[in-house]
C-alpha cells in the first residue's frame, strides 16, 4: 500500500478490498444469556399453575373490574386536568413580581409536596370532622349555598380533591421550568409588536414552553394513573380496590392482581403514543425537519420493500 502513491496505475487493476467487521464474541454470549433468562421466565409463566391464567382471563372482562377501570380512568383524567390548570396558575403566580402571589404559590407547593399524598387523601375524606357544614357565599357577607360536609365529601370528591391539589403542586414546577426555558428575547419581541402580557404568555411563551412541559407531564399522567390506586384507602371502588374486593371473597389474590396490573399496563400503553404525538405537535419549527413517526417509518419500509420486490420480478 505504501507504493500506491508512486504507482497510481497499479491501484486501478487491484481488486476491490473486502471489509471485515470487528468480531464481537461478548455480544453473542450476552445474547445467549438473556435468551435463556427470557425462556425461563416464559416457561414459569406458562407452566406454574398458581398463576391461574384461566381465572385471569375470566376476570379481565368482569363487570366490577371494568367499572373500577372506568373509575380509575375518570379520577386520573379529572385530577390530571385540574392539576395542569392549577399548576399553570401556580407557576404564573410563582413567577409574578407580586411578592404576595409568589410567596403564596411557594407555600402551597411547600405544603402539598411536603406531606404524604396518602395523608392528604384521608384528610379530605375526613373533612367533615373539621368542618361539619360547608357553605358558599360572599366572604363576610350573605351565604348562598350551604350543606353538610358529609353530603359533599363522598369518596369520589375526596379522591379528586386529594389527587388534583397534590398534582397541582408538582405540575406548577414543571410549567415554571417550561416558561423559564423560553428565551427572554421572545417576550421582548412579542411586546415590541404591541402584545399584552397575557397574550405574550398565551400565544408566544406557553406554546414554546410546551416542548419542555410535555415529557414530564406524560410522566406525571402515567404516575397519576397508578397513584390513583391509593384511593382504595378511602374505599372508592377503583380498579385495584375492585380487584381487592373480589379476591377478599374468592382468595384468588395473584390472578386478580394480575388482572388489575394488565389493565394498568394496557391504559399506559395507550397513553404513551398519545404523548408522542402531542410532543410532535408542539415541536413544530424546533428542528429543521421533524424525524418520521414510527408509523411513517413502517410505511416507508413497506413501500421500499414492495418496490424492490416489483423490480425483482421482471
Amino acid at each position: 500500500m505504501t507504493t500506491s502513491l508512486d504507482e497510481p496505475a497499479g491501484m486501478i487493476s487491484e481488486p476491490p478490498l473486502k471489509v471485515r467487521p470487528v468480531r464481537r464474541p461478548g455480544r453473542w454470549v450476552a445474547t445467549a444469556l438473556v435468551a435463556i433468562l427470557v425462556a425461563l421466565l416464559i416457561r414459569t409463566l406458562i407452566t406454574n399453575p398458581n398463576y391461574e391464567w384461566s381465572i385471569v382471563a375470566k376476570y379481565m372482562t368482569n363487570e366490577a373490574i371494568l367499572k373500577g377501570l372506568l373509575v380509575t380512568i375518570e379520577i386520573s383524567a379529572i385530577s390530571m386536568g385540574v392539576g395542569i390548570v392549577l399548576g399553570t396558575i401556580l407557576a404564573l403566580m410563582r413567577l409574578s413580581p407580586n411578592p404576595i402571589l409568589s410567596s403564596t404559590s411557594w407555600a402551597y407547593i411547600w405544603f402539598f409536596r411536603g406531606t404524604p399524598l396518602l395523608v392528604q387523601l384521608i384528610f379530605w375524606f375526613n373533612l367533615s370532622a373539621l368542618y361539619p357544614s360547608l357553605s358558599l357565599g360572599i366572604p363576610f357577607g350573605p351565604t348562598l349555598v350551604s350543606g353538610s360536609a358529609n353530603d359533599f365529601i363522598t369518596p369520589f370528591t375526596a379522591a379528586i380533591l386529594g389527587l388534583s391539589l397534590n398534582e397541582g403542586a408538582y405540575m406548577s414546577e414543571i410549567v415554571r421550568a417550561g416558561i423559564l426555558s423560553v428565551d427572554q428575547g421572545q417576550h421582548e419581541a412579542a411586546r415590541s409588536i404591541g402584545m399584552s402580557t397575557s397574550k405574550v404568555m398565551r400565544r408566544i411563551v406557553l406554546p414554546q414552553a410546551m416542548r419542555v412541559i410535555i415529557p414530564p407531564t406524560g410522566n406525571q399522567a402515567i404516575g397519576m394513573l397508578k397513584t390513583s390506586s391509593l384511593v382504595s384507602v378511602i374505599s372508592l371502588a377503583d380498579l385495584l380496590y375492585s380487584a381487592e374486593i373480589i379476591y377478599a371473597s374468592t382468595y384468588q389474590t395473584v390472578p386478580l392482581l394480575i388482572v388489575a396490573s394488565l389493565w394498568y399496563l394496557i391504559v399506559c400503553s395507550i397513553m404513551m403514543p398519545c404523548q408522542y404525538y402531542i410532543e410532535r405537535h408542539y415541536s413544530k419549527g424546533s428542528t429543521r425537519e421533524l424525524p418520521p413517526t414510527p408509523v411513517q417509518r413502517v410505511l416507508a419500509f413497506l413501500r421500499r420493500h414492495r418496490l424492490t420486490q416489483r423490480k425483482a420480478v421482471p
Partner: peptide, 20 residues
Amino acid sequence: SKQRIDIGMVFQNFNLFPHR
C-alpha cells in the same frame, strides 16, 4: 402595549417566533 404598536423594533438576535 398600545403605544408599542407605533414603534417597530428589530433585534440583534432576530427573536423570530420559532414555532410559527
